[in-house]
Computed example of a mutant assay.
Amino acid sequence: MPQAILHDYYRSSASYRVRIALNIKGVEYERRPVNLLEGQQQSDEYRALNPQGFVPMLEIDGHRLVQSLAIINYLDLRFPTPPLIPTPAAERAHVVAMAMMVACDIHPLNNLRVLKYLKNELGHSQEEVDAWYAHWISEGLPALETFAAPRAGTFLFGDAPTAADVCLVPQLFNARRFNVPLDGYPTLVRADENANRLEAFAAAHPDRQEVPQ
């Protein structure tokens, strides 16, 4: 029996993060895909479970957990080995800051509901929506590169993956989908390449998930 149930969408960045974290922690889980393109996240059935109507949502230990960073924090406390967030205060702040640069600064501006609003309600063309997406990635990654480089190793912080890498990998997947050049971010690209060599990251990739019908 799985230890957890993950409600997610295969190409959702936030869901991708949680799949990686679950894999790193060795937590068995059942995926229950929620088709964002079809609006299943807004259904009465799903909102009865998660009033915010977002993915991911993780059912574990009798709890329904939402928000990817909160879920990752829960998993790190519940299953402490291997750690995703360091214990020393300054190191913890550094790793959490890098995770938040992606999860709080870049990603929300490019969330599907924002892109749909730009196109449908505000009448922007697909070309304009794609340009919006690429702009906010290109604005956010330089700061992350500069912030990470002095303390990076094999990964964004040292030589073991942290929550920062868990957030980075889905973001660079999206950057490549929208043809955002990554040549100027050697630290980020190196960490991404090393992370994707690990099965915990590779198994979470959207291409290896069931696509909702």
Rank of each mutant, 00 (worst) to 15 (best):
L109F: 05
L109Q: 05
L109Y: 02
N111P: 03
N111Y: 03
R113T: 10
R113D: 09
R113H: 11
Y117N: 10
N120P: 01
N120H: 15
E121T: 08
L122R: 15
L122P: 08
G123L: 04
H124M: 14
S125E: 03
S125Y: 01
Q126D: 15
Q126S: 11
E127L: 06
E127D: 13
E127N: 07
V129Y: 03
D130C: 08
D130K: 12
D130H: 14
A131S: 13
A131L: 13
A131K: 15
W132V: 09
Y133T: 15
Y133W: 14
Y133V: 14
Y133M: 11
A134M: 12
A134C: 13
H135N: 15
W136N: 12
W136V: 07
I137A: 06
I137P: 06
S138D: 14
L141E: 01
A143N: 10
A143C: 09
F147G: 06
A149G: 01
A149Y: 00
P150H: 07
P150K: 05
P150Y: 07
T154K: 15
T154R: 15
T154V: 10
F155P: 06
L156S: 13
P161T: 03
P161K: 04
P161H: 05
T162V: 09
A163M: 14
V166H: 04
V166G: 04
C167K: 03
L168N: 02
V169L: 05
N174Y: 11
N174T: 12
N174C: 13
R176Y: 06
R177C: 13
N179E: 12
P181W: 06
P181L: 04
L182F: 05
L182S: 07
Y185P: 02
T187N: 00
L188H: 09
V189R: 10
V189E: 11
A191M: 07
A191N: 06
D192G: 02
D192K: 02
E193V: 14
N194Y: 05
N194G: 05
N194E: 12
A195T: 01
N196A: 03
R197W: 04
L198N: 03
A200P: 01
A202D: 11
A203N: 14
A204M: 10
H205K: 08
H205Q: 13
H205T: 02
